[in-house]
């Protein structure tokens, strides 16, 4: 690979949820284009620690684009400039020597900052708790091949199930709507025969929960789909809306609460 790069970072620093935050500037010389974005941050942090300073807090875990733990707004884009790529899979070869890079946390009322670039995404779990499952207990199901599922339906369900729950859709949305995340789960389960008995009630409850959590409304801008590292289609939101409307007609009203978990 070609030589190393010198990068300037503008990073959002915030010591806690109620503390005021601000951008700080850091020089990052000697960065290899083969490094991942988080490896670049590792190096910046190593230097900060050696200099007796507080390192930049950011969430990450698997570093292979599947756990959904990482997520930074890089130069204004959730997960940065590369399509279909999580922050951990973004590599420094996407940037040029001398670039200045702005790094911010997910910004949404429903995702308060814990520290620096780390946010609290507990509402996503609560949306699943509201109905993002099929109510089968361990040991109950019949033989797996007793229930054929057409390949196209299985594939479409898998397209929706590929969501990693990172929250980039919320960060990218001008309204901070969580519709793509919610719709992906409603569609994953609703496209399968196993998911039919609870299909409409599931949609009602999950939608009610996302509204309660303080996420914004969806106006089908499509920013979420553009930012989604797994390419989840906005068509699933239309499907969710259809299930919701049908559920509002056919199902008894639902009640959801904040908290739990």
């Amino acid at each position: 690979m070609s030589g190393t790069m010198n990068i300037t970072l503008k990073v959002w620093r915030q010591s806690g949820p109620s503390a005021p935050g601000a951008f700080e500037t850091y020089k990052a010389p000697g960065i290899s284009p083969d490094m991942s974005f988080l490896e670049m941050l590792d190096i910046v942090n190593e230097r900060l620690i050696e200099g007796g300073k507080d390192p930049i807090a950011f969430d990450h875990d698997c570093r292979e684009g599947i756990c959904g733990m990482c997520g930074l707004v890089i130069n204004g884009a959730a997960h940065g400039p590369s399509k279909l790529t999580t922050t951990c899979q973004l590599h420094m070869r996407s940037f040029k020597d001398g670039d200045s890079i702005t790094i911010e946390p997910w910004r949404a009322k429903a995702f308060p900052v814990i520290k620096d670039l780390v946010v609290d995404r507990a509402p996503l779990d609560r949306i699943i708790q509201a109905g993002g499952f099929i109510s089968v207990a361990t040991g109950g199901p019949q033989d797996a091949n007793a229930l054929p599922v057409g390949k196209p339906e299985a594939e479409q369900s898998m397209d929706a199930a590929a969501c990693i729950g990172c929250g980039a859709c919320v960060a990218a949305c001008p309204n901070a709507s969580v519709s793509l995340f919610t719709a992906a789960k409603i569609s994953h389960l609703g496209l399968l025969p196993q998911g039919q008995p609870e299909r409409y009630r599931r949609a009602l409850k999950m939608v009610a929960q996302m509204d309660l959590e303080g996420f914004g409304g969806c106006t089908l801008f499509g920013e979420c789909m553009a930012a989604c590292p797994k390419g989840i289609s906005i068509d699933f939101i239309k499907r969710m809306n259809g299930d919701y409307i049908w559920g509002s007609v056919t199902e008894a009203p639902v009640k959801v609460t904040l908290g739990g978990g």
Partner: peptide, 22 residues
């Protein structure tokens, strides 16, 4: 064998043949 049954029951979208079987 019970695991596969359980997971299909939960809605795990395993790969399928065109006939609909796993």
């Amino acid at each position: 064998n019970n695991i596969i049954d359980q997971c299909v029951g939960q809605g795990v979208p395993f790969g399928r043949e065109y006939g609909g079987l796993l």
